[in-house]
Amino acid sequence: MPILLLADHDNATLSDLTAKALTAASKIGGDVHVLVAGKGAKAAADAAAKLSGVSKVLLAEGDDLANNLAEPLAALIVSLAGTYDTIISAATSVGKNVLPRVAGLLDVAQISEIIEVVSADTFKRPIYAGNAIQTVQVAGAKRIITVRTSSFAPAASQGPLAAVEKISTAALSSSLSAFVKDELSTSDRPELTSAKIIISGGRALGSAEKFEEVILPVADKLGAAVGASRAAVDAGYAPNDWQVGQTGKVVAPELYIACGISGAIQHLAGMKDSKVIVAINKDEEAPIFQVADYGLVAGLFEALPELEKGLR
């Protein structure tokens, strides 16, 4: 039976995390159908149709689906579930919100945040903030899976064009919840989860002003995304959507620069799969140095401006 992949998109553009989840779906095997649910989402559906490995795109549009509210989206997926044995999504805030609801409605266990497809019914996933890796096998006919996208390369966007089929969204209407507003941070910097370079700041920065003053210029010079430790977020130095860690975003860029971050377990869980890790910290005993490829024991307020000047 084919696999249903829930696309992550903002109607206008398809998130590249969907291309990564597609790689995981393709490894499970079978035709992959991508579900694009939204409103005015033709552009996102067309982008999904170009991804290699997609055999069909289902486009479901309606007012209820415009804002990714869990109830109508889960109802839509459940209405399609009969012909699919695997329902899969990137572990984004949309996937994490809606797939367990689908699993509850279908009475199926969910496997969260897989990092490897061992075989069609066996997967690896991290537990305890990535300090242990479980191999789990699914019993039963249906699988519901979210994918930790930092562990999979994106599928190419040059496949033969898949057909886009419009599907009916009648009888979804849910009056249980209503969208009020989105307050999304607007930034010219790359997204954390897809950036090649990330520079992150910790509590050692001391204030939101200092965070901006020393981290952002280096980020701009490098074309890097900006991250933060939970401690820095808790202290109000950085917004929550910058948080990297067990309870924030999990990232695996080419280069991760941790500035004034001690290296708590919960932070390491979010970045230790980065290709190259740099740690800058004035405490030479900080645990972050145990995972860093390059460590610099130095004060941030001297080292970061110097780094910014040195990058040409």
């Binding site: 266990a109 537990i127 890796i133 699914v138 390059y294």
Partner: peptide
């Protein structure tokens, strides 16, 4: 519903250089 086949240590990461 899920059978845990094994639990292992994650791939370690070694400290590099200062």
């Amino acid at each position: 519903r899920l059978k845990v086949l094994k639990t292992e240590e994650p791939r370690g990461r070694e400290a590099g250089i200062k």
